[in-house]
Amino acid sequence: MFEYFYKYGSPRHFYDLSKMFVPWLGGICLILLIAGLTGGLVLAPPDYQQGEGFRIIYVHVPSAWMSLFIYMVMATAGATGLIWKVKVADALARASAPLGASFTFLALVTGSLWGKPMWGTWWVWDARLTSELILLFLYLGYMALQTAIDDRRTAARAGAILALVGVVNIPIIHYSVEWWHTLHQGPTITKLDAPSIHISMLVPLLIMALAFMFYYAAVVLLRARYEILENERNSAWVCELIEQRRG
């Protein structure tokens, strides 16, 4: 099993394989996005309290979910690269950081745009918002480490350790609304009993979340391909690729 893993985990195989996957993942993402946006912006009824303003949920919540999910992927990939020295895992971790930062940024900004009309404020320093902001700084710190350290192997190792140190923040973000009084409301979907959102509003939300998931899968491969090229710029197979491009 490990042989298989190492074979397909080799940078070259990954580079070729990912080329095949990206268009498919991207295509599925586009279809889901169109379905989710139609459902969320047109078909879903307005909320009984927030009217049309609640439609921000369809970008805010999937972004927030992705910001947590991508961090876990980044930390896991970082640990895999650290322990088993899998180069592709390092590339995936490095490629995940800007995406995670983007989604965290979107979750914060769309939340702010939602908070202003509904809560009456752009920002409050409650536990949920503050821990999500710390997540953004963790991503930015990781990215800064990658640019600051020239040797890419050392950068990957340092980044993995930073990512692992920050993992503690993930459960804090998730449970902050239950552990402390916050302005942010409690969980809607992930509580154990039935979700407290009407089915006609829930379906587009889940479709949008799935669309964001496929988006991440497609774009992280796209970015990891570049990271691998950069890692292997002096290897024989990259030279071959360049010869092909010249010819």
């Binding site: 009456g120 409301q185 409690g186 809607t188």
Partner: peptide
């Protein structure tokens, strides 16, 4: 000096409400 609204986690169409 400041009043903020805290909305709950329930979302539903007006008819359901």
């Amino acid at each position: 000096s400041e009043v903020l609204a805290k909305h709950d986690e329930n979302y539903m169409p007006p008819e359901v409400a």
